[in-house]
Design a protein around this nucleic acid. Structure first.
Length: 825
RNA sequence: GCCCGGAUGGUGGAAUCGGCAGACACGAAGGCCUCAAAAGCCUUUGCUCGAAAGGGCGUGCGGGUUCAAGUCCCGCUCCGGGCACCA
């Protein structure tokens, strides 16, 4: 291959330059406007894969583009370096997770460098660094003091064979342990939680103004799952203690149709309600529910098998009728009150259950005419509902709630699907939870001056599924910071989502030694102006990071406003191959390295920009290599047009019409690329550059007496400048060759354009007859309506198409279109 | 089941506000250059009828609104994703 330039040498040279010249290091006292651009920090699993390349092609483009526009762009990089893969590797090979992880970081770092993406490497943050662990633990302790961190019983997956807790992923579809094959059971264990539910309303309401993809906002709203309703009491029939069953509903308007009630198998009133005759049946449901994980419980069993009559009854306060109480696994103890009123006429689950158990149905909303289904959940006139009759659903809800409150048996309330965040993990390779348990003082936080609590290295990694920390001979032994007596150290570590919930704040001031970060530095850079990452983080990471930001502000650790960390979010599409996500675990990675070794980083980056809309998924196919080669060919062509512009002949005389056209095309290019980059339409920005290169080439070929030197030079400069954020190496080298050893294209200002010149000199006006194109006329862009009509009707082709028919209407949309409509059209 | 996307040439895609469908690229075909090849350059390339000029059809399917629909409305099909008993 006869290359126009030495790709490898040039890319290496400029990567070295950028590192030496530190042009992308930015400080909090920089006078330029601060702009924080961040790609989600990666889990280090080895060399960069195509997903990284795509992510950083977008991110680096933005960093360089905004810098050329005059902003001080904060572009940090780090590693989400705690996590299960390193621990699993340790179990497999015996290699310590730290050495394993640091080797993977080194690989990822060097391949990221080869992409030519620029970062402020001084700010590198790694989750497993003692400095990060220290402040992670410091924040945990503030959460503990504030009551945001708390300990509670929670149902976990317990393997009796391994005597340990399992993550959901370690439980197979049939409910057995992936290691021992034993049946996994639900068991309540003490676990650490963060009270994210305190922020449920703010997390929901604050979504609205965010410039995020709508579907991500929808997913978060659904995840939070706010529902407004009412709780009220149903007195037990014949209960010597006079107890009541409390239920939650969002449809109090349907209360007159309540023909039975259902309670969760774990509900404390199950025993009180169960009759001797029904005890065996109820126990069966309870045992099955206790055995099954929630996953199994929510899928599958037939309606008859899912519940049983308790033998007990409660009173429906609206009708004063006694109704039977059933126990069923589809009612969850953790949501609402763990008990529901069942209205089969207006709830599909209740309908199915009622049908299976032969329970009565009373409609309270009049379904529309012709409705033949079962439950009607829509709006309609209330019927069979005494004082609610005639109201619509919304009004009846209000009236029913008012009535319950007047009677003093219920009150308005709100429930959320969102649960508190379970943060403890029975794992080694994570941030230790900094507390000890004292026999006299209970849970005591490790004092700040003893942080960080670091896990010992001399542990055994065994395939047991629990943390080696719990088996370490001395780690558990601690002294109580309050009394100095013997205490036991917490051996759980934190969920790795904790690390990623505030790393972007640490990036603002990673040097802080007396606090997690300087609030002034955070105030300078935050919020992240543009966050870029995968859609797979749409819910958990982004929700946790939002929660953390708010909690840290409320604790005075982070500066006050704004309370949202990520103003704009962009979620890139994933890369698929053979209809599967391209990933290491699927074993279908196409390594970027071979492209870096051949066509180079610029061509590979350009391909990722050009391949399609950044938000869309992309298929890696048999054709992909050819497209990448095409991107390389384009860059070589640009090189020849710009660097090897030739000896001439050149003209320096007055510009011709063809020269003027090139000037206009140049201004159009700058306008178009700038606009496209702003709106994340990178593929069309690349297309515009390619089109311009075609124009430039044609101009050179066709210019009589050679190209006009000033016109050609301006065109070349503009093309290089707009390409600079996309293909940084080639454009940097070309610029240096044109302007000398000190010239730096990325230090140039983003080019301006003249809107007058960017406008087309002439416009093709389409003339239609009855909507079909019959002629095209070149006209001035500012042509008047009358003139456009005159030209259109004067066209010979139009007369011919009309064939004597009289125009009934002429629609004129200058300068683009005239449509002549005849009577029959 | 519910919610959200998407469907445009052989392929990836473009059409930013209802106004020329197919920009740009890949592939393919032909040509120039060359002893030959590679590279490069130049043409052609939605389907179809036609020798040509020119015509007809065409954005998943069926309707509708409009002078005009890839774009808006109604009803479907298929593909992808999210949530999956949250009362």
């Amino acid at each position: 291959m006869a290359r126009a330039y030495d790709v490898q040498a040039i890319e290496r040279k400029w990567q070295d330059r950028w590192a030496e010249e530190r042009s992308y290091e930015v400080d909090a006292d920089d006078p330029r406007p601060a702009r924080y651009v961040l790609c989600m920090y990666p889990y280090p699993s080895g060399p960069a894969h195509q997903g990284h390349v795509r992510n950083y092609a977008f991110g680096d483009l933005l960093v360089r583009f905004r810098t050329m526009q005059g902003d001080a762009v904060l572009s940090p990089y780090g590693f989400d370096s705690f996590g299960l893969p390193a621990e699993n590797a340790a179990i497999r090979t015996g290699e310590h997770p730290r050495t394993f992880t640091e080797a993977r970081i080194a690989e990822l770092k060097s391949s990221v460098r080869r992409l030519g993406a620029v970062y402020d490497w001084r700010r590198e943050v790694r989750s497993h660094d003692p400095a990060f662990i220290r402040w992670n633990q410091y924040i945990f302790l503030r959460f503990l003091e504030a009551g945001i961190a708390y300990r509670a019983n929670a149902p976990v997956n317990w393997c009796p064979g391994c005597q340990t807790v399992l993550a959901n992923e370690q439980v197979l579809a049939d409910g057995t342990c992936e290691r021992s094959g034993d049946l996994v059971v639900q068991r309540d264990l003490e676990q650490w939680f963060f009270r994210i539910t305190n922020y449920a309303d703010e997390l929901l309401d604050a979504l609205d103004p965010l410039e995020w993809p709508e579907r991500v906002k929808v997913m978060q709203r659904h995840w939070i799952g706010r529902s407004e309703g009412v709780e009220f009491d149903l007195p037990l029939v014949d209960d010597p203690e006079g107890r009541s069953l409390r239920v939650f509903t969002t449809r109090p308007d349907t209360s007159f149709g309540m023909t039975y009630a259902v309670i969760a198998p774990e509900h404390p009133l199950v025993d009180a309600l169960t009759s001797e005759a029904q005890r065996a049946a109820v126990e069966e449901i309870r045992a099955a529910a206790a055995r099954a994980t929630e996953l199994d419980r929510t899928s599958g069993a037939s309606p008859e098998k899912r519940g049983a009559f308790t033998g007990g009854s409660v009173v429906n306060p609206f009708t004063q009728a006694a109704i039977p109480v059933y126990v069923a696994d589809y009612v969850l103890m953790r949501y609402g009150t763990g008990a529901i009123m069942a209205v089969p006429a207006e709830d599909e689950r209740d309908w199915d259950f009622a049908a299976a158990h032969g329970l009565p149905v009373v409609r309270t909303t009049q379904p529309p005419d012709g409705f033949e289904g079962g439950a009607w959940t829509g709006d309609g006139e209330k019927i069979n509902s005494a004082f609610l009759d005639g109201l619509d659903v919304a009004a009846a809800k209000e009236r029913a709630i008012d009535w319950l409150e007047e009677q003093g048996i219920g009150h308005r309330t709100v429930n959320y699907r969102l649960r508190d965040w379970l943060v403890s993990r029975q794992r080694y390779w994570g941030c230790p939870i900094p507390v000890v348990y004292c026999p006299t003082h209970g849970i005591v936080g490790v004092p700040d001056d003893q942080l960080p609590v670091l896990a010992p290295d001399d542990v055994e990694f065994l395939p047991r599924g629990d943390s080696p920390l719990a088996r370490h001979p001395t780690f558990r032994h601690a002294t109580c910071p309050v009394c100095g007596g013997p205490a036991e150290r917490e051996t759980d570590t934190m969920d790795t989502f904790v690390d990623s919930s505030w790393y972007f704040l640490r990036f603002c001031d990673p040097w802080a030694e007396d606090r997690p970060f300087d609030p002034a530095a955070a105030r300078h850079f935050m919020p992240v102006y543009q966050y870029i990452g995968g859609i797979e983080h749409a819910i958990l990471h982004l929700l946790y990071a939002r929660f953390y930001t708010k909690a840290l502000i409320d604790l005075g650790v982070a500066p006050g406003t704004p309370r949202e960390p990520f103003t704009r979010l962009f979620t890139q599409g994933m890369i698929r191959m053979d209809n599967k996500k391209m990933s290491k675990s699927k074993g279908n990675l196409v390594s970027p390295e071979r492209y870096l070794d051949s066509v180079g980083a610029d061509a590979l980056r350009l391909f990722h920009l050009f391949a399609g809309p950044p938000a869309d998924d992309m298929d890696w196919t048999a054709q992909t290599d050819e497209v990448i080669d095409g991107c390389g060919r384009f860059l070589e062509r640009v090189w020849r047009l710009t660097v090897e512009a030739g000896e001439g002949p050149w003209r320096h005389d007055a510009p011709t019409r063809a020269d003027d056209e090139l000037v206009r095309a140049t201004h159009r290019l700058v306008a178009k690329v700038g606009n496209d980059l702003e709106r994340w339409s990178f593929n069309t920005a690349v297309a515009a550059c390619m089109e311009f290169a075609n124009t430039l080439q044609r101009y050179r070929r066709e210019a009589d007496g050679g190209p006009h030197r000033p016109t050609y030079d301006a065109a070349v400069d503009a093309l290089l400048l707009v390409l600079a954020p996309m293909t940084p190496h080639m454009t940097a080298e070309a610029w240096e060759r044109r302007f000398g050893a000190d010239a730096r294209i990325h230090a140039q200002s983003w080019p301006a354009f003249d809107p007058e010149l960017a406008a087309e000199a002439t416009v093709t006006m389409v003339v239609q007859v009855n909507g079909k194109v019959r002629d095209r006329i070149e006209v001035a862009p500012d042509i008047s309506e009358d003139e456009a009509r005159r030209l259109a009707l004067g066209s010979a082709k139009i007369s011919e198409a009309l064939n004597g028919a009289e125009p009934a209407r002429v629609i004129v949309r200058p300068p683009r279109l005239v449509n002549v409509v005849t009577g029959r059209g």
